[in-house]
Write a protein that binds this DNA or RNA. Sequence first.
DNA 1: GCTCGTCTTTTTTTT
DNA 2: AAAGACGAGC
Length: 737
Amino acid sequence: MSIYDTLNPQQKEAVLHTEGPVLILAGAGSGKTRVLTHRIAYLIEEKGVNPWNIMAITFTNKAAGEMRERVDKIVGFGSESIWVSTFHSSCVRILRRYIDRLGFDHNFTIYDTDDQKSLMKDICKRLQIDTKVHKERAILSAISSAKDELVTPEEYELNNMSDFSKKKIAQAYKEYQKELRKNNALDFDDLIVKTVELFQACPDVLDYYQERFRYIMVDEYQDTNTAQFKFVSLLASKYKNLCVVGDDDQSIYKFRGANIGNILGFEKVFSDAKVIKLEQNYRSTQNILNSANEVIHNNIGRKEKSLWTDNEEGSLVHYRQFMNAYEEAEFIAGDISRKVREADCQYKDCAILYRTNAQSRLFEEKFLMANIPYKLVGGVNFYARKEIKDLLAYLKTVDNARDDLAVRRIINVPKRGIGATTLAKVQDYASEHDMSFYDALKEAENIPTLGRAAAKIEPFVTFVQSLRSKTEYFSPSELLNDIIEETGYVMELKAEGTEEADARIENIDELITKIVSYEEENEDPTLSGFLEEVALIADIDTVDGDGNQVLLMTLHSAKGLEFPYVYLAGMEDGIFPSYMTITADDPAELEEERRLCYVGITRAMKDLTLTCAQQRMIRGETQYNKPSRFIREIPRELVDLGRDFKEQKIKEIPLPNTMKQMKQAFKQPAFIPKQFEVKKSAGLSYNVGDTVKHIKFGVGVVKNIVEGGRDYEVTVDFDKSGTKKMFASFAKLKKVE
DNA sequence: GCTCGTCTTTTTTTT
DNA sequence: AAAGACGAGC
């Protein structure tokens, strides 16, 4: 009996079908990682493929790490020469070697979102773009979308000649790319785009990698964007041994450019593609899986499939509604304590998933109070913290002389009395002489406008030069220690003595630990290498199973993970699905939220709890929300409503500033009484002849209601906007009394 | 050039 | 609620 006999027939087929394009539609919990690792083993052991010729691509470092570990275990000798990495690190690795062909230096810097923003701020000033009209963030996100679609600045401009504000963006895009090049820097999107460019510009380089990667596997394929698809298809176009694994129901990154067409149209692009469906779920109980199936069934644009499981029925899905978010958090904290005490459950078996990072705070508070160990994933990235960015900027300055952004960040940290005026003068001089900002600093005494300020610059330049000279014989960690000593960074914080300063010092200690462990783990540790690792790390990557602690994270971060006990918190219309998607014109946005809900539910192995609050503080404002529509999509008989659901008391009613909204939150039941059919939406709260209100069109009279398959089509004559036809579930019409 | 206080804004999700 | 931007005053 071989290891392949432990696979089910579909899994086995996916493993044995090694030649040509393969699309594996792998439902949640259907053992896709197992298939991928076995497939790699099969390629090497049975097909005699050289491990060197295999590439496996994932989205997160964590997924890559896990895959690597499992591959190492199953393959043994030779596994280290398999490329198992993320899109981004694969591209960086290729670019570090060949980017000179595109006119960049090998030691290019990778800009994070903060860097991008400050660069864009500069550009807007220069191009006289009013950032009140065109926000930096909006411009950057337009640029990012363009890059996801492989649209160059020139093409973007051509495509948008007639649109004034897009023309502005085109200008900014052009300038932005110019600046990046000048600073010898790439942003996240560029890593993919430039690699594709490289492949297209240099057939010899492409050929080298095509020969190298004869067997390519892509995980979470539903989340690839157009650029990533191009990258993969270029690599695979010679040998065509491309195996992609994904689940269209788990596509949740459209906002980041993920092109669901990549998975839905795979068979069209690769016409001889073999399609294999994995539909047996090994993770969840029947009740959980059925709930998930019912919810996702409400989506229209999907490949039909039916996940099933041999697992036991399990307990019902729990649903609890609370007065406010405090009580919600308190309940979950208490419930976890109880489970750990009474049931066969450890802290690390539990995870709390929510829609937005802001929701984590209350849980943190309650957990601290209840003495529950927890780990928060996401929020402010460790490497985005001020103190970390400051120190990294020093390292970047030493590493890449052309990274103006880094130099400007630290030139006055600690205070050296160098202000905005001086910086502007140096910048002018640099632009005039077509040199980098730092090179201009080196010639400070030659800049006539500076006057006495030049004397303040000199020690800084000397300091950086001395650091640079040390790179020869100093390790990155020694260099960092040197910087901390010389700048007195930690000393200053110590002097402050505040709690915040202490936290910053702790973070710096953690940075030191990270740099040291980087040196230990790598044979040839370099400063560039460390900075690169740091730039590409995601928060989820640092989660390991070692600590016994409850995990707190967003639904997005939870993708690909599983936990015995899962809490989905904040199940409220307006939170999840988010307000943006409820009010959006495009129903596809709500479908993406529903997929997110599907992802959330299917994280749970044995026990799932859904909670919501009637009242919650959002951005300093109290909101009253109805229970999430997704809850209603779970059949009533799969849900445990809690013993005191019926006598749910309406306690002291808060101030009636938004009385209407509030009433709704209190009254709205999560489940409609039995006599209604569950599938057929909630029934309507208005009739023909009633006056209703629409969020956009205002007040109007209902003229007609037509019952459609899954929804009602309502015709309304609006006072201001005329007659409109709309679907009841999207229109969110409210009866006006 | 620096600091402090007030005003403004917050994409929901991230490699 | 909280962080960031901005301007007045030192």
